[in-house]
């Protein structure tokens, strides 16, 4: 099929074409770049909601309930669910759909599983591009579920407008709650499985952490803490309302555009970095890379100096002000 036809059909609502287009951008090759060029002008309309948290906290179940809630409110929902790729075989088991059966058969909801394919930040390399395709296809809300995350998988902040961090009772003490990392990125905290013992303590620790940081909250927004039981649907409406209030806060304070600008700048820089490196590899002979590597192994040259040798061959020395 022709790429232009595929994009046209996907944006017109043909699901088979949409699925195929996600596959195309997922490969990240030259064809993917041409596809994204056609998709990009249509993006920027969806509310992108990230859901992250440790494995087993109930992320998929929560995503399922939030999607049902927004569907009942008449909004269309797309879900991108990321699960890890095996570092050994390159294969993956993508099991997030198991918790999303209730969304089956609904033409206003689209679910796509993605394997992380070697990325370590909680998302796949192409998750951002898959989001663009779904945004362009007109979904009102795009929910992105990360790989079960530990402390440092914070890439979701680069893609989502609103990040939900899911906690459950009984995980870690109050020092865990003041560590840097995943707890800092929350726009909304959901304490799931709130029918379990110890929920008050978990909420208290999160509240304490938030109060320690009072006055320094990102974007002047103090993350609310919502207690849910996603398996039964308890307090899902409150969680959804907190997410909507966060979006309203961003819009009201002109922060959405600011976040989008930061996001695009980071994405652009990432692409520049990758392509500049590829260009260097193309222009400096492979034998020379090997020779420099050998010299580093022998401790005859350090990595900064080796980088300068490569750069000097491609740019005029006066072009670069290397630190």
């Amino acid at each position: 099929m022709e790429l232009a036809t595929l994009v046209e059909k996907a944006l017109a609502g043909n699901r088979r074409a949409l699925s195929r287009l996600v596959t195309v951008v997922e490969t990240g090759d030259a064809l993917a770049q041409r596809a994204l060029a056609q998709v990009f002008p249509h993006t920027g309309k969806a509310h992108i909601v990230g859901v992250t948290g440790a494995p087993g906290t109930g992320k998929s179940t929560l995503v399922n309930q939030l999607a049902l809630h927004w569907r009942q409110a008449g909004r269309t929902v797309a879900i991108v669910a990321v699960d890890p790729t095996s570092p050994f075989s390159g294969g993956a088991i993508l099991g997030d759909r198991i918790r999303m059966q209730a969304l089956g058969g609904d033409p206003g909801c689209y679910i796509r599983s993605m394997a992380s394919r070697g990325s370590l930040g909680g998302l796949a390399r192409a998750t951002g591009d898959a989001i663009k395709v779904l945004d362009a296809a007109g979904y009102d809300v795009i929910i992105v579920e990360t790989v079960g995350a530990g402390q440092a998988e914070v890439e979701i902040t680069r893609e989502a407008h609103t990040v939900i961090v899911v906690e459950i009772p009984g995980m870690g003490d109050d020092i865990q709650a003041i560590k840097a990392g995943i707890l800092e990125i929350a726009d909304v905290f959901v304490v799931n499985k709130a029918d379990r013992e110890g929920v008050e303590r978990t909420v208290r620790q999160l509240r304490m952490m938030l109060h320690l940081g009072a006055g320094e909250h990102r974007d002047g927004w103090e993350p609310p803490i919502v207690q849910t039981v996603a398996s039964s649907g308890l307090h899902i409406a409150e969680a959804a309302a907190a997410v909507e209030q966060h979006l309203a806060h961003l819009q009201h304070n002109n922060l959405l555009r600011q976040r989008e600008s930061q996001r695009l700048e980071r994405e652009w820089n990432t692409i520049l970095r990758e392509q500049a490196l590829a260009a260097l590899h193309a222009r400096v002979p492979a034998a020379e890379w090997q020779q420099l590597l050998q010299q580093m192994l022998e401790r005859q040259i350090d990595p900064y100096a080796a980088a300068a040798r490569v750069l000097d061959q491609v740019f005029q020395p006066s072009d670069i002000d290397v630190v």
Binding site: T23, T85, G95, R97, Q101, G104, G105, I111, R112, S113
Partner: peptide, 23 residues
Amino acid sequence: MEVIYTGLQQTPQMIVEAALQED
């Protein structure tokens, strides 16, 4: 391979829909 596992008791409609969404 990347395996999408959908769990038990699937109707033909659910299976086909999942297969098409997941390409």
